[in-house]
Computed example of a mutant assay.
Amino acid sequence: MKNILSVCGMLTLICVSSFSQAHISPTASDIEDHDKDGMPDWWEHYFSDGRSEKLDPARDDSGEDPDGDSLLNIDEFRYGTHPFEKDTDEDSLDDGEEVHQHRTNPAIADTDGGGRPDGYEVTNGADPLSPGDDHSSVITASVSLRPGWNLISFPVSPPAVSIHEILAPISGSYSAVWSYRNGKWKLYDPDKPGLSDLTTMEAGWGYWINMKHSGMLTISGSAAPKSVDLEDGWNLVGYNSPHSQPVKNVLSSINGKYLSIWVFINGTWKAYDPLHPEFSDLTTMEPGYGYWINAGTRVCTWILP
C-alpha cells in the first residue's frame, strides 16, 4: 500500500510540477505566431481543425469577422469567444453586441451572476451588470386547463420561448397545440416535434391546446408588452395583463377599428359586439385566455391601458 501511495504521490508531484512549469515558462509552440497577427498559431489551428471555415496561421486574418457578430478575430481571441459562432455563451446576445453595447462578458451567459442570462435581462429591461435586479421583476401566473380544447394565452413573458420547454410541466398531458399567425395556422405535435412548424410560445399570441386531462400550467417571467399588433381580418391574440378588466376599457385604444371579439371559455363561445354591447355576453377580459379579434380591413396596434 505504501508503495502504491508513494508512486501515486510521485506522479501527482510530477504532474503538478509539469503544469506549473508550463504556465511559468510556456513552450515555443504556445507563443508561435508566424503571421504576426496577434493570434497564436495553436489558437488558429484549434478553431480550424475539422471545420469548413478556417483561420489561417500563415496569413494576417486578425481583422476579419467570419461569423458576422461585429467582433473581429483578434477580439475573439482576447475575449475567449468562438470566431465562428455569433453567440458563444448562448445567452441570446451576439458576442459583438455584448462587448460594444452592453459591456457584458460574451463568454459567460450570466455576467453579473444574478441567475438570469444577459439576453433575458436586456430584453426585459434589467441591468445585466447588476445581480440585484435579476429576480425583482419576475411574475408567476397559472393557466387552468380542462380536458379537450382550451384557448389560452400567457399574461407574462416567459424567459424562454421554446414550446417544448414552456410546456414541459404538462408533458404527456396534451396532444396538440395550434396557433394562428399572420393568416396561417401553425401546429405543434409533441409526438412529432420535428415535423411541427409551431416551435415557440410567447405573450401576445393565443393558443389552442388539446388536453388529454385537466392540468395547471404555471409560467414565470417578466411583465408582458402593453402593445399587440393586429393584422387585417382575424387575429388570435393573447391578453397581456395579469388583471381582469371590462372589455370596453381594454379595447379603448382600438375603438372603432375592430368588428368583434370572441373567446372560448369552459367549452362555450362568448362574444363582444362594440356596436351592440347590450347584447354581448363577453363583458370582461381575463388573464390566461386567448381571444379572436376581427380587425376588419384595418391594420392597427392594440395598446392595453
Rank of each mutant, 00 (worst) to 15 (best):
residue 2 K to E: 15
residue 2 K to G: 14
residue 4 I to A: 05
residue 8 C to N: 03
residue 9 G to M: 08
residue 10 M to A: 15
residue 11 L to E: 06
residue 19 F to I: 15
residue 20 S to M: 13
residue 20 S to A: 15
residue 25 S to E: 10
residue 27 T to V: 13
residue 30 D to H: 11
residue 32 E to M: 07
residue 35 D to V: 12
residue 35 D to N: 12
residue 37 D to L: 06
residue 38 G to V: 11
residue 39 M to I: 15
residue 40 P to S: 03
residue 45 H to Y: 11
residue 46 Y to I: 06
residue 48 S to I: 08
residue 52 S to W: 05
residue 55 L to K: 00
residue 55 L to I: 11
residue 57 P to K: 02
residue 61 D to H: 03
residue 62 S to W: 02
residue 64 E to M: 07
residue 64 E to D: 11
residue 65 D to A: 09
residue 67 D to M: 02
residue 68 G to T: 12
residue 70 S to D: 03
residue 71 L to M: 13
residue 71 L to I: 13
residue 73 N to K: 03
residue 75 D to E: 13
residue 77 F to G: 11
residue 85 E to L: 04
residue 87 D to G: 11
residue 88 T to W: 04
residue 89 D to S: 11
residue 90 E to M: 12
residue 94 D to H: 00
residue 96 G to M: 03
residue 100 H to N: 10
residue 101 Q to A: 10
residue 101 Q to L: 14
residue 101 Q to K: 12
residue 101 Q to E: 12
residue 104 T to N: 08
residue 108 I to M: 05
residue 110 D to R: 03
residue 116 R to E: 12
residue 119 G to Y: 03
residue 119 G to C: 10
residue 123 T to H: 07
residue 126 A to N: 15
residue 126 A to E: 14
residue 128 P to C: 12
residue 131 P to M: 08
residue 132 G to I: 14
residue 133 D to W: 01
residue 141 A to Q: 00
residue 141 A to V: 13
residue 143 V to M: 00
residue 147 P to M: 02
residue 149 W to V: 13
residue 150 N to K: 00
residue 150 N to F: 00
residue 151 L to N: 01
residue 151 L to V: 10
residue 157 S to Y: 03
residue 157 S to C: 11
residue 160 A to F: 05
residue 161 V to G: 02
residue 161 V to R: 01
residue 166 I to D: 00
residue 171 S to L: 01
residue 174 Y to T: 12
residue 175 S to T: 15
residue 175 S to V: 14
residue 179 S to R: 05
residue 180 Y to N: 11
residue 180 Y to V: 13
residue 181 R to H: 08
residue 186 K to P: 07
residue 186 K to A: 12
residue 195 L to P: 01
residue 195 L to T: 13
residue 196 S to Y: 01
residue 197 D to I: 15
residue 200 T to C: 09
residue 200 T to S: 13
residue 206 G to R: 06
residue 217 L to W: 00
residue 218 T to G: 05
residue 218 T to F: 08
residue 220 S to L: 08
residue 225 P to V: 13
residue 226 K to Y: 07
residue 228 V to F: 00
residue 238 G to D: 06
residue 238 G to P: 10
residue 239 Y to I: 15
residue 239 Y to M: 09
residue 239 Y to F: 14
residue 240 N to W: 01
residue 242 P to L: 02
residue 242 P to C: 01
residue 244 S to V: 05
residue 247 V to Q: 04
residue 252 S to P: 06
residue 255 N to A: 14
residue 256 G to Q: 07
residue 257 K to F: 09
residue 258 Y to Q: 12
residue 259 L to T: 11
residue 262 W to Y: 06
residue 263 V to K: 05
residue 266 N to V: 00
residue 268 T to S: 09
residue 269 W to F: 09
residue 269 W to K: 00
residue 272 Y to N: 07
residue 275 L to E: 14
residue 275 L to D: 15
residue 278 E to K: 04
residue 281 D to Q: 00
residue 283 T to E: 00
residue 290 G to I: 11
residue 290 G to H: 03
residue 291 Y to S: 05
residue 295 A to I: 13
residue 299 V to D: 12
residue 299 V to F: 03
residue 300 C to V: 15
residue 305 P to M: 01
